[in-house]
Structures are given as structure tokens and as C-alpha cells.
């Protein structure tokens, strides 16, 4: 599997196959984000299309040092989806002022939340097999460290270090992509 660096370089060289690779790898996440934000499939597919076309025309602006390609693509998709929501809201105000109600608290999740989830899921998939497996048991099956040790046959100390390292990696990625996307402020100064 080619790295983001290599993919970025091929993209900058105008290699359309690199865009196809990015689409195969991340198109599902882009579509998911768009669908969660827009709530309808046709608009979500439109936004997915716009996202990859924009990624192509703006391919010189992607810098692998500032975040992953997935993070970059999701950032574009979020902007496109929000633009579409805004223009839909404008249309609604003109034709139907009743619908200009503020969203109820605890209603639809924020774009940042969906985006963070996708970024963490992607990084989880990239972890070394042992770390990934122990984290899945902790996250998805709610198993405790000793239970994970029993299920996997790994020593408790090993389970501990897999989970600690895995979570540290997820955290780094979440903070890096989050900072690149502006969904959070970078560094320890951010509000808790």
C-alpha cells in the first residue's frame, strides 16, 4: 500500500490514477461524512463528487506533513457539505420561514464529531495487529485488561502496553488531523 506521501506526489504530478487510489481508499469515509451531515443520499453523492474534483484541482495544496490524506479529504468534504446546508437553509428561509428553527440541543452530531470518528477508525485500522486487536476488545466488547489477557492468551503486561501504545497513537493522530482541520486548537492550551 502506497503511503500518503507517495500518493500526494503522484497527485501533484497529475496522475489521475492516484486520485482513483485515494477514492478507493477514502471514498467510503467521504460519502459517510456527507451522508451524516446532509441526511440524504443524493446530496451526499454530489458532495463526494465535488470533494474529489476539488481535491484534484487543489492537489498542490495537500501537504502530508500537516495531516493525513483522509483528514485533508474529510476537511474538503465538510466544507462542501456545510456550504450545501447553508445554501439549502437560505432557500428555506426564502420559501418557508417556518423551518428556520434552531436545531434542538442534543440533536444532529457536529461535523467535527463524525470526522473525528472517521479519523480514529482509520488510524485503528493502521495499528499493528496486536495493538489493534486488544483495542477492539476494549472498545467494542468492553472487556477489561484481565479479560483481554484471558481471551487473547497474552500476558497482562503485554495487553497493558498494547493498549497504552495504541491509544497514544490514536490520540496523536486525532490531535494532528484535528489541528490540521481546525476542529480543535492544537496543543495543550485547548479547553477541556
Amino acid at each position: 500500500m502506497s503511503s500518503d506521501d507517495e500518493l500526494a506526489e503522484r497527485l501533484r504530478d497529475g496522475d489521475e490514477k492516484a486520485l482513483r487510489t485515494a477514492y478507493d481508499r477514502h471514498g467510503g469515509a467521504v460519502l459517510y461524512l456527507a451522508q451524516r451531515l446532509l441526511g440524504n443520499r443524493a446530496d451526499a453523492e454530489d458532495v463526494t463528487q465535488m470533494t474529489f474534483v476539488a481535491a484534484w484541482t487543489g492537489r498542490d495544496t495537500y501537504d502530508p506533513r500537516r495531516g493525513t490524506m483522509l483528514g485533508w479529504l474529510l476537511g474538503i468534504a465538510r466544507r462542501k457539505a456545510v456550504d450545501r446546508l447553508r445554501s439549502a437553509a437560505r432557500d428555506d428561509r426564502v420559501t418557508e420561514t417556518v423551518r428556520a428553527q434552531p436545531a434542538p440541543p442534543g440533536g444532529p452530531e457536529t461535523p467535527e464529531r463524525v470526522l473525528d470518528r472517521l479519523v480514529v477508525a482509520d488510524e485503528l485500522g493502521r495499528l499493528p495487529e496486536d495493538q489493534r486487536r486488544t483495542l477492539e476488545l476494549a472498545f467494542y466488547d468492553d472487556l477489561t485488561h484481565p479479560q483481554i489477557a484471558a481471551v487473547t492468551g497474552l500476558p497482562l503486561g503485554t495487553v497493558k502496553s498494547h493498549i497504552r501504545r495504541g491509544m497514544a497513537t490514536l490520540r496523536r493522530r486525532w490531535e494532528v488531523d484535528g489541528a490540521a482541520l481546525g476542529s480543535r486548537s492544537a496543543g495543550p492550551s485547548r479547553a477541556l
Binding site: 473525528d116 470518528r117 472517521l118 480514529v120 483495542l135 491509544m167 490514536l170 486525532w174
Partner: peptide, 11 residues
């Protein structure tokens, strides 16, 4: 991260 990790299953 733990919370996002739990949510990550669906994606």
C-alpha cells in the same frame, strides 16, 4: 479517544 474508539466500529 476511548469514546471515539467505541464509536469507530460503525465506520
Amino acid at each position: 479517544v476511548a469514546e471515539l474508539g467505541g464509536e469507530s466500529q460503525e465506520v
